[in-house]
Design a protein around this nucleic acid. Sequence first.
DNA 1: TTGCCATAGTTCCAAAACGACACTCAATAC
DNA 2: GTATTGAGTGTCGTTTTGGAACTATGGCAA
Lengths: 112, 112
Amino acid sequence: MKWSDLSDNWCPVARTLSVVGDRWTMLVLRDCFLGMSRFEQFIESSGMTRHILADRLKRLVEAGVLERVAYTTTPKRYDYVLTEKGKELAPALLSLRDWGKKHLPVRRATSA
Amino acid sequence: MKWSDLSDNWCPVARTLSVVGDRWTMLVLRDCFLGMSRFEQFIESSGMTRHILADRLKRLVEAGVLERVAYTTTPKRYDYVLTEKGKELAPALLSLRDWGKKHLPVRRATSA
DNA sequence: TTGCCATAGTTCCAAAACGACACTCAATAC
DNA sequence: GTATTGAGTGTCGTTTTGGAACTATGGCAA
């Protein structure tokens, strides 16, 4: 079975994961919750490649988790902001954060 | 930056995702919370390939989220059971479930 | 004692996704 | 003019995935 087939799974966990369950997606959302909204900000903060970020943003907009809001018209540039639907992922992010704080202490500093 | 470099990230969300943030891993944990513990059960329940399941189980055991408990000695066979550390991921799973129930209604039935 | 089944993986290969880096395009800054 | 910034694309080689077949170990049954 392919990952993409999960979107129609009977299980709500699986359906959620079909949206946010791949590499990097949750990190983009974390940055959104931290107040970021622009392409270059996400790149710098998360360390992911531009290629993948473009893909993830597209998916998140399609899923209704983020909204593309133009902030200049020429050239077209957009802020990516959380929708209500997106904001309601906060509890999941917080749970992941708490678990990481408790169970995965930092072993060495990184510059990211 | 590579995905695997996240394990030493300053952000606890990123560190958590380095363990559970890739495709399928959370689904394996969901099945564990539903009471499953064996290879073939995970395969049947999640629809993932054997290959990937073997890899994910190995990583989860290495990460201390699951524990391998022998249930026959010849041949060696194991139950995969949640450790305390693993059980504490429950809030995250529940958050993902709630979000899916609310925001991702099923569009058509599937047999999985 | 040969044959079949079950469990738990492994191996192999093709296809898709990823990672690194260069390049584009529009506008503004110097 | 030339350089810089923001938001991506294009290319290309490397990993990871998906699918199917294969292996290993023992139980059971004819």
